[in-house]
Design a protein around this nucleic acid. Structure first.
Lengths: 225, 225
DNA sequence: AACATTTCTTAGAATTTGCTTAGACAGACC
DNA sequence: GGTCTGTCTAAGCAAATTCTAAGAAATGTT
């Protein structure tokens, strides 16, 4: 687990680095806000620990700019005692935790552990496929057509996903069977036909514009008009 | 919440006292270091705010002697002097925070609040996840639903945490197993199902609105309605 | 129009998936 | 050692989905 520590005071920096490394973290360091920003955007750190007062770019600005770049990495902000009114600013900038110096190292460690636990989150990308008024959300496994929810089973969903990913293309039944069912189309099965039928009932039946088209003797196409 | 304010300049003292009382603190006052010491040892104050320059016993001595008596009450030291050497002395004496006059009352209030929170040196920001009436506190490892405490085992807690962090998303059993159990889902285990069941009994059973939903053939989702 | 081929539709059988419970096992605490 | 607590396995049951199979309909060909 890799961390970035940003601090311009060498003694403090080394103390933190050493302590974290002893606790099995990999630690990158930066003395300067601008360098820190570059590192933070390049590497995928589990958390960033930064001082507020820094050369180049202060902790507040660093934090704000990283968030502006869409970085979700947890940030722990350190500040000296006489800066407590900056606390509010720190949170507004997007810091996740705030800690006043001086502090016990054990406390820092506890907080870093708590922050890095958030890594249990699955990839944040909200993947949705859109075409012809149909919206297929891969995270929530939901399907909407013209704003109306459509309830699909797991297999139906997989089939629709495959059709939408190959939107406009003619897909033969063996191809579909292979991708959606992981079967060789040897066995004279008609599952594909059956499931196309299920999908049509749910997705096309109540709408004037059909999206699933039969290409006689060739396969099926997902397209408008 | 009871505070002690030690200050010999009457005008300043009254301003601080009034401001704090308006902010719902109970305030005791002292004009003199010796009186302050007696009060501080007798009453259990949430924090002590003291000037550095005082008759009887100066703020530095007051601070040092209280610590020598084993008092752990947070101390906020006020001083007109802004030289850093004074800061060092202040901290050595055992003060928790240090503030130079003149100051904005809002800042004083913020510091007092931070000091009276939890522990002395650190204003802990409670790490809690909230969703649909459920409050999961990562620091205390406690869970509440609609203000009612819910008792969970470590594994149940980890599962709920993972569900809440990925709230709204459909999580497959292999994904859950990997993140909450650190296992490859090869082994035909059904732990996930069993623990979903445990969690439902404790979290959903006695509430009309269910939060854990089964997406047949796909996984589980944590969401409202 | 008659036929062959392909696709659609449906019912219900087969299978998969999920829920629930009981109990085995291990570690913590007396 | 015995008890308790928490974690996990296993098995039976229920429910939902998936698939098969067979007749109906549609399409294309002669």
């Amino acid at each position: 687990m890799k961390l970035l520590v940003v601090e311009d005071e060498l003694k403090t920096l080394q103390a933190i680095q050493q302590g974290l490394e002893e606790s099995q973290f990999e630690v990158d360091v930066a003395y300067d806000g601008l360098i820190a920003k570059r590192l933070a955007l390049k590497n995928n750190y589990a958390a960033i620990i930064t001082d507020l007062i820094l050369p180049g770019l202060n902790g507040y600005e660093l934090c704000r700019q990283l968030r502006a770049e869409g970085l979700a990495t947890p940030i722990l902000m350190l500040t000296a005692l006489s800066e407590s009114s900056d606390k509010v600013i720190g949170f507004d900038a997007g810091a996740d935790q705030y800690m006043t110096k001086p502090f016990q190292f054990a406390e820092l460690l506890a907080r870093v552990r708590s922050l890095t636990k958030r890594g249990t989150q699955v990839a944040m990308t909200a993947q949705t496929l859109r075409y012809g008024g149909v919206e297929l959300n891969l995270d929530t496994k939901t399907v909407m057509r013209d704003g109306q929810p459509i309830d699909l089973t797991a297999r139906e969903f997989a089939l629709l996903e495959f059709l939408m990913r190959n939107q406009g293309r003619v897909l033969s039944k063996p191809t579909i069977a292979e991708h959606v069912w992981d079967i060789n189309f040897d066995t004279g099965t008609n599952v594909v036909e059956v499931y196309i039928n299920y999908l049509r009932k749910k997705l096309d039946r109540d709408f004037p514009k059909k999206l699933i088209h039969t290409q006689f003797g060739m396969g099926y196409t997902f397209k408008e008009e």
